[in-house]
Every structure is written in structure tokens, then in C-alpha cells.
Design a protein around this nucleic acid. Structure first.
Lengths: 335, 335
DNA sequence: CTCAGGCGTTAAAACGTTTCAACATCGAGG
DNA sequence: CCTCGATGTTGAAACGTTTTAACGCCTGAG
């Protein structure tokens, strides 16, 4: 490891003061072209790399925002992240992605670290609904895909209750009267909201609440969907639902696999509706009906809100988008 | 924004020196229990958050490694990242994910920033084959999914030439003699290697090199696969390939969609083989034959190599894994 | 010839930690 | 009673930047 060449070494090597080197780095226009060249040459020659810690310590600014996602392997979040990144780089900021993997502890650790790093701002899709745990620590923080209950911070969300309602109303209209909802854990706000929406759909249609069987899963990954599929098929056929609403597309894809594997047909034996409308939903074995969310826009808006946090007259806003049902083969009407 | 409470404020509030506060933070065992409690109380009361910049500046250590991925939306890379993160947290380090999105400029910016941040180490799947551009800058760096040509750094890779060979040999054995390879841009090393492998397979089988039609794409996303599908179908049927080997699964899924949409059947009208064997490959409209890579292990190994970089007697290693063909319906033998 | 003002450069003071040698305090062993 | 070691605590010096006010120099106007 090199003996760490600093700004003073560069200065000495170029025969100027360290302040001049700093100026070359930060306000190149203020220093005379000849001097600038000399300094740049010295920088190149010594292989100087500016120490961001020192810079940040003195300047007080960081050039980074972070997005803590619930599951980096879920394309939904990477799409949101794309929106975030686009907005961030327009503002000259870099984006660091952190994966909480739906784990409480990891989330806490990342938040702690990010606060300590004094990043310019934090975006987070929290594991837990209880957003009160993010005590104010001086770093702007915006909730993504989750409405802030109290008014203490900005949030960007999609109406998940409506989304659940759209999905289940669609299934009811297709003639289903025994419907499963698959998702979990219930500690995740989105799952609860989509469930509420499903119940509301039943109520609207005058169906009893027990027309909906809730199958709770431990997570929202494909494997959990497969597991749920087995549980579903294990039910006595008199009680077995004829349609399933999954809390996200990963579950739905897993469910689909499980059905095929057990020799059942979708949508004939079981209609399936997913949530998020990730790109892979349309490419699935049976193209998946799904509830689409404005993913990139969600991220972009969240980032913009975050960036507006340190405007003098900022007041917290809560943006809520509308979801949209995309009907495909997996829920085609029986005939 | 708070007037930024520092370690000295805490010290004063607890009636101790700042050195003691620092000790409470870093070596809690060395300070008397009573004092420790008092300091912790002060920390809680004032809402003190340690300034990582200052800490890092003084201590010289960071607690973070970063992984610069080629495409965060590609499940292959998030799976690799999972392996990386597992290994990193075992070593007490956090992982920041950066997305170069196959863009030269972004990649350079992130690398620059990470060097300046003095992260503990950098993992990268580079956009460009020419790894010489990563001039040594004092931060350990290992290449992921890309062999290092010179011996100047560690790398972890999978034998892409072999992978291409496996895929195309499989197609040849299934009776295909006009095969397309879809992928690009050719600036990406993996694409070139998989192509070489494909050519080798032809040679092994005694087929002429023009049995392989190379369709270059601008990227490796699903949309590019759809585009390639249209180009493929646009070919005069006498020359149209009966099988396609895609440089990754995203392309293959796009191709699949495009075929269905144009009323062609897979594998009857076109057999398809993908690469990576991402989770969605098995759930596709036609379950996808694919070349599987040890994704998590790739990441885990890369992280371990990175961590070993600052051992005194470190010498650079190049680990190469073997890919494996997974046959599914998309390439079923014609009968 | 003098002087105001612009321009380029600089010395020195922060920024908030960690670390190290030195310093009290105290109980035990001689 | 003195010494010694152990135990806790502390003052002050880094770490490598950015920033500010001041400085010297030069030019052109008076």
C-alpha cells in the first residue's frame, strides 16, 4: 500500500501551496491555466486520489444518497431504483444500494451506518410498518412504497388497498367465489393493505368475508409461492379456492410453477393474479395478470422529494399513485 | 438541521473527556461500568450520531466494501451480490451496491468515488474487457465474472468459452445445423467468450463456421431479446436458423416472448438456449434450457479473495468455475 | 508617479474523530 | 510507610481536506 499521497505532497511537488491544489480540484476556473496544468501534472504523476472523508469532514457535504431496499432480488425494487438513480444523477449525486433482505437487524445496521456516513439523504422501503423507529437523526429520509402515518417525513406510495380491490374485483367478476390470498409476513404493510383491499372487494360484491382464504407466507420470494401452491392443492377440493391473488409477482410465479408441476392448469383449475407487473410477469409460463405500479416514477418522485428536503421552506409531502390492473391469460374467464 | 452534536458535547454533558467517550464507542470494556452508563445516557439524550468521516479520517479504516454491477436489474447479478454480502457480513463489513448499467462513464464515476471514499475494497463486473483501465489506486479490487488477463489483481470467473460450447453442442446434438447466437455488445467480454465457445462447438462437430449466425444486440436486456426475435423472423426462411443461443437469460426470455407473439412455437419452430439459469428461466412460458453458473459462490469467493488482499503474504489468484447445462423444454429434441 | 482594484496565491484555522503517552487513584505487598 | 501494579481517565496531537481573509503583484487610470 502506498504511503498515501495527500494534497500537500501534490502541492510541494508542483511548487504551490495546498490551497491552490484544493482550488484546482474544486474551482478550476479560479486558478491560472499554467498553474493548473502544473498541479494536474503533479496529481497524475503522484497518483493522488482525493480523500473523501477529509473533504466531507471539512466541507460538510456528501455526494451520495442511499436506497435501502427490501429485496434486491425483486425486479420491482431494481426498477424503482432505476428511477431513483436517474433523478439522483441529474442532481449530481451517486446512489448506493443497500439490501435489507427483509431483515430487521440488517435494516437497522444499514441505517445506522448511513447516518454515520452523513449521506445526503436516505430512501427506504422499510421492513416494518412501524416507521416510528426511524427517529430523526438529522439526515433526510423518505419512505418509498409506504405511506408515512405521522406527518414527520415525506413518503411516496401506491394505493395498495385499491390495488388489492382491483385484483379481487376482477376475479369476482370472472365468476370466482372461493378465492385465496397468498402473501406475508403480515408485518409488511403492503401485504396488509392489499389484503384489506381484497376484503373490500368482497364486501362490494356482497360476498361473505370467508370467501377469502388467507395463506400466510414467510416471505415474498418465488420459493414461498411454490410452497403456498402445495398447501393450496392440499386443501380438500370442496373447499379449495378457484382463484388466487398473490401479494407480489414472485409469489405468483412460484405458484404457477407449483401448479404446472402438480398437473393443474392455470387459469382453468386456478386463476392467478399477481402484483407489481414486473417484466417477467408477461413472459411467464402463463402470462400473468398483475397489478401494475408506476415503478420508475415511484423512485424518481421519491428522490425528488428527498432532494427538496433541505430547501428552506420544505414541508413534508405524501404522494400517492394509483395502481392499474393488467389482465393476461392467467385469469382468463372460464367458459 | 441540528447544530450537529459531536463527541465533545457528549463528553461535556457526561462530565468526562472526549477520549473517554471515544473509548465507550470503540472499547467499551476498558471504561468503568458507571462511567459507561453515564456516557451512553448522554449519547441517547443528545441524540449523538458518530461522524464516520472523522472516524475514518483518523482511524484509516472503513467498514464498507462495494460491488459495482453491470446491471442491477439482472437477477444474475443480484444473486452474485447475495453471495458477496453473506461473506462480507461474516467479516463485519457492509456492502454498497452500485449500478454501472453497462455504461462506461457511470462505471468510471463510481470507481472514482469509491476510491475517494477509501472503501475497504471494490468488487466489479466491468463494462469493458480492457481491465487495464483500473489503474492501481491503493484500494483492493477484484474482478467478478471476468478473468484478469494480467496478473495484477484477483479475479473470479466462470469458463464462458466452455459454457458457449456446452450450449451449442447441445443444440447440434439435437439436430440443428443452422444456429443463431444472440448477444452484445461485443465489447463485453462474456459475450465474446460465449461466442468463441459456440464456434468451438461447431468446429468439434465438423460444421462450417457459417452455420452460426451472429445477431449482435445493443445490450443484454429483455427488450433487446424481443428485437432480436423480430430480426430473426425477418430472415428468409431458407436461411433462418432453427435454434438460438442467447448470451443471457434476459435475451432468451425476450426472444421467447417475441416468438409467441409472432405465432411461432418454441422449441418446434425455434429451439432456445439461455445463459445464467436465473430463477425466472424455469418459470418461463416455455421453461428455458440454460447454462447455469454458481452465482452465490461466485460472489462469496470474490468477497473472500477481496478480504484476503491485505494479508501480508497475499498473491493474486484467479479462480475459475465450471458452468453446467440445464436442459428444459425450450430445446426439447424434435421428433 | 501614485493608487485603486483585480487577480492569483497562500497561511492558518477549522472539521470531529482516534490514539497514545502520561497521569491520578487506590489497594496490596513488602 | 513506601512502592508497585492495576485500573480509569485525560490532554493533545494527529488525520487530509476546505475555506477565509489577507497578501503581493500587476495594470491602467488619474
Amino acid at each position: 500500500m502506498k504511503p498515501s499521497v495527500g494534497i500537500r505532497d501534490v502541492a510541494q511537488h508542483a511548487g504551490v501551496s495546498n490551497a491552490t491544489v484544493s482550488n484546482v480540484l474544486n474551482r478550476p476556473d479560479v486558478v491560472a491555466p499554467a498553474t493548473r496544468q502544473r498541479v494536474l501534472a503533479a496529481i497524475a504523476e503522484l497518483g493522488f486520489v482525493r480523500n473523501e472523508s477529509a473533504r466531507q469532514l471539512r466541507a460538510g457535504r456528501s455526494r451520495v444518497i442511499a436506497y435501502v431496499v427490501l429485496d434486491a432480488a425483486n425486479p420491482f425494487f431494481t426498477d424503482v431504483a432505476r428511477g431513483v438513480e436517474d433523478a439522483a444523477r441529474e442532481a449530481g449525486l451517486a446512489l448506493f444500494l443497500c439490501n435489507s433482505a427483509s431483515d430487521d437487524g440488517r435494516e437497522r445496521e444499514y441505517l445506522e451506518l448511513l447516518h454515520e456516513q452523513r449521506v445526503e439523504g436516505i430512501l427506504i422501503t422499510p421492513v416494518d410498518g412501524d416507521s416510528a423507529r426511524f427517529t430523526e437523526r438529522g439526515t433526510p429520509l423518505v419512505l418509498v412504497d409506504r405511506a408515512s402515518t405521522d406527518g414527520t417525513r415525506c413518503s411516496v406510495a401506491v394505493d395498495d388497498v385499491l390495488g388489492g380491490e382491483l385484483a379481487v374485483t376482477h376475479l369476482i367478476e370472472a365468476g370466482h367465489t372461493r378465492i385465496a390470498m397468498i402473501g406475508g409476513p403480515l408485518s409488511i404493510q403492503q401485504v396488509r393493505d392489499r389484503h384489506s383491499g381484497a376484503l373490500r372487494a368482497l364486501a362490494n360484491a356482497g360476498l361473505p368475508a370467508d370467501a377469502l382464504t388467507f395463506l400466510e407466507t414467510k416471505g415474498l420470494q418465488v420459493a414461498e409461492g411454490r410452497g403456498a401452491g402445495e398447501r393450496l392443492v392440499g386443501l380438500p377440493s370442496s373447499r379449495r379456492p378457484t382463484a388466487a391473488f398473490c401479494a407480489n409477482d414472485l409469489l405468483a410465479l412460484g405458484l404457477l410453477q407449483s401448479m404446472t408441476q402438480q398437473g393443474l392448469r392455470v387459469p382453468d383449475d386456478l386463476a392467478v393474479v399477481g402484483y407489481d407487473d414486473i417484466e417477467f410477469a408477461a413472459a411467464a409460463a402463463v402470462p400473468l395478470t398483475s397489478v401494475r405500479q408506476p415503478r420508475e416514477q415511484l423512485g424518481r418522485t421519491a428522490a425528488q422529494l428527498l432532494l427538496s428536503e433541505n430547501e428552506p421552506d420544505h414541508e413534508h409531502r405524501h404522494v400517492k399513485f394509483q395502481p392499474e390492473l393488467v389482465v393476461r391469460a392467467s385469469s382468463a374467464v372460464k367458459r
